[in-house]
Design a protein around this nucleic acid. Structure first.
Lengths: 222, 222
DNA sequence: TGTTAACTGACAACGGTCTGACACGAGCAA
DNA sequence: TTGCTCGTGTCAGACCGTTGTCAGTTAACA
């Protein structure tokens, strides 16, 4: 669940990054449309938070060019109050939502969750896998109706496997989703987190299988 | 899926080789254009990563001569920031992509994957042969909708035969695709892997026929 | 039928993965 | 500041699966 923030105000960007880190969504940050385009050309994000007023090319131009290329990635626009009439054109250009500054981070996070949920085509905020229930909004996880306490990394990993059931995820895939650019780690960090997650989910019907030399496969197993 | 790196900086080459090994793409390395040409004349690679600034003949010359010979192999150029204006001419000369040093390995790997995918005919992410389906995205293989578990080498071999249906592959061809220089093996390693693959695919319509003294031929057979 | 290539069961070695122990930094309280 | 706790990454050694080798057998072709 990686998010890219395109925002030239460093203080705001820092605060946003920090908030999203705390709630468990790694968020990368670029200051300009040019940098964002470069990043998007090779890395894979689940959504964009895009400031409209940027030095150089404006956020609109980025949005427009993305949609012209047929990319459907969810985009949430940030706009200052003075630019509020822009919202119509923002939505017309293919933004999925917009938010007026100053932003309340909790609202921003909630709207992101909503967009990501819509993307998945899921109506509810919970993911279910056999006896395991994961509430994305409250971060509560239960196995057989018993609460299970997961740490941030474990939760991220679980969410990733639940979203990709019956699909092989390479360590690289996982690293790309869990870590931002400046958090490069040894592959062992993932193994370690996985060990911890497996231990905590030993009673659940989610089984994460190792495929040696390739990666991991999450599937239901009862 | 073999990649050749042409780079005179040993530290960088080592690190790249190590990273690619970890993500499962063996990578061979030569330090000069001359060596690369010799290697390319007798061995078969799926893509090149080419540094521009090399002692002796420059990377451009290699690229140019390859394209003049009509070779369409994907080439990704590495260039130092000072040479950034070169990118136009690099792309003009027939490079498929370029990257400015210092390189982020994840970006390098992602761009390589993108090129290889494009090469392979991006659209379809699955290869089908009768009742056998090989999903390149999820790495899952099914025969009659039953999952089949293959090991790394078996998967590589299967992919090779699927890409070369109705074409004879010599053992040497196969060795060239599966092994890097420093993994030289007896021909028996391939026979052994093939035995294992055939056993696991006994129910499938892919049949790998032995052509004594020549090699192997993969074809549909139902 | 003899010769040679290919096949395959058994086994060992290598290397990827797992996991306990520890290090380190952030957050917090005294 | 100091000291404590907690989360998470690193390290190193154990573990164990995959894969190459060996050797004996089978099949192909002259």
């Amino acid at each position: 669940m990686r998010i890219l923030l395109i925002e030239d105000n460093e203080a705001l960007a820092d605060a946003t990054q920090e908030y999203f880190r705390q709630i468990g969504h790694p968020l990368d940050w670029t200051v300009s449309v040019e940098m964002a385009e470069r990043t998007l050309s090779w890395d894979d994000f689940d959504m964009l938070i895009l400031d409209i007023n940027l030095p150089g090319r404006s956020g609109y131009q980025l949005l427009q060019s993305l949609r012209q290329k047929g990319r459907t990635i969810p985009v949430l626009i940030l706009t200052a109050r003075a630019e509020i009439d822009d919202r119509v054109s923002a939505l017309d250009l293919g933004a999925d939502d917009y938010l007026v500054k100053p932003v309340d981070f909790r609202e921003l996070a909630a709207r992101c969750r909503a967009l990501l949920r819509r993307e998945r085509g899921a109506a509810s905020n919970t993911m279910v896998c056999g006896n395991l229930i994961f509430n994305l909004a409250t971060h509560q996880i239960t196995v057989n109706n018993q609460a299970v306490e997961l740490r941030l990394r474990e939760r991220q990993l679980l969410e990733l496997f639940l979203k990709n059931l019956d699909r092989v995820l390479t360590k690289e895939d996982i690293a790309n989703k869990l870590y931002t650019f400046d958090e490069a780690n040894t592959p062992n960090a993932i193994e370690q987190t996985l060990t911890r997650l497996r231990k905590k989910l030993s009673e659940s019907s989610l089984h994460i299988k190792t495929i040696r030399g390739l990666g991991y496969l999450g599937h239901i197993d009862d």
